[in-house]
């Protein structure tokens, strides 16, 4: 084989993998990178989308949203909503997974519970929002039960009061999201070798010790992975909040997604909306990088 032929062959071998990858790279580029780059570009333009000849705005729109107290309130509400959701998703998911994995519960009852516990996952966000709006409305079932039990003295406007609205939407989101943890942890629990527990029994370990020293460490990779993913997804929740409260009352449930939506479709300020979207992108990107690094380290 001549030298030229050899180098040609080498080149072909080097290029081949990229050729195989090119269809998916093209699709990713078109469907993900292009919109992302476009939104980033919009955030630096005046009257983006609305004018055919938008001028360069520099960091003006970022400055505008950082100067807006509603943006900071939205960021705080987003963090509260997300952190509480992830913590309770994990806690409830773990309790239910342990329950479904336990031999102490009758198998028939276990199967019934398995179906019941997974139900919230089967509903779309819109259905969940409608269900909770009906349940938590001032004349709804929840108030009626709480009043009969003497827990509250008068009707509480769960979604309409600035004091309770954020907690109410967070509660609805917790209800909607725990099955992801439950299913993932249940799969993890079923994968823990029985030998560990048998050895612990021989050593006289109590139930809580087995939980702390065997179950949780064994599940830790799943807990961290799912928590990070849940954090990223919950941060972007929009329909549930939009349908239940619309970001109100006042700004008490305004989160970054509703804040951005209002900028885009209520104020038609698509440049500022893009700047806000880029901020959300950067936060999500930071978490995603953290997730990728964690996955690599494993």
């Amino acid at each position: 084989m001549t030298r030229q032929k050899r180098s040609h062959h080498k080149l072909k071998r080097a290029v081949a993998p990229y050729l195989y990858l090119s269809p998916s790279l093209l699709i990713i580029g078109l469907l993900m990178l292009l919109p992302m780059v476009t939104v980033i570009a919009y955030s630096f333009q005046n009257s983006a989308v609305l004018r055919r000849d938008p001028s360069f705005a520099g960091l003006k729109h970022y400055q505008a949203i950082f100067d807006d107290p509603v943006f900071w309130a939205s960021l705080w509400h987003t963090l509260y909503f997300t952190c509480m959701s992830v913590i309770f998703h994990m806690t409830i998911g773990m309790i239910f997974a342990l329950m479904l994995n336990s031999d102490r519960i009758n198998p028939t009852l276990r199967n019934i519970l398995r179906v019941l516990y997974i139900l919230p996952w089967l509903f779309t966000a819109v259905i969940i929002a409608v269900i909770w709006r009906l349940l938590l409305e001032p004349n709804g079932v929840v108030n009626s039960i709480l009043m009969q039990l003497g827990i509250i003295g008068s009707k509480v406007e769960w979604f309409s009061s600035p004091e309770t609205a954020l907690h109410a939407v967070t509660f609805a989101n917790i209800w909607a999201g725990y099955p992801l943890f439950m299913v993932s942890l249940l799969a993890g629990l079923q994968g823990i070798p029985k030998d560990f527990y048998e050895a612990a029994d021989i050593d006289g370990a109590k139930a809580y010790q087995k939980l702390i020293f065997i179950t949780i460490p064994q599940l830790m990779p799943i807990i961290i992975s799912i928590s990070l993913l849940d954090f990223i997804w919950t941060m972007q929740v929009f329909p549930l909040i939009w349908i239940t409260t619309g970001g109100g009352p006042i700004y008490s449930t305004e989160v970054l997604s509703t804040y951005t939506y209002k900028l885009a479709f209520s104020s038609y300020n698509l440049s500022q909306a893009s700047a806000s979207a880029v901020v959300i992108l950067l936060i999500s990107l930071g978490l995603t990088l953290f997730y990728i690094r964690y996955q690599k380290a494993r």
Binding site: R133, S160, S161, A165, T244, G248, P249
Partner: peptide, 10 residues
């Protein structure tokens, strides 16, 4: 008290 409650999200 004449307005039906839940004004802010109605």
């Amino acid at each position: 008290g004449t307005i039906s409650p839940g004004i802010a999200t109605k």
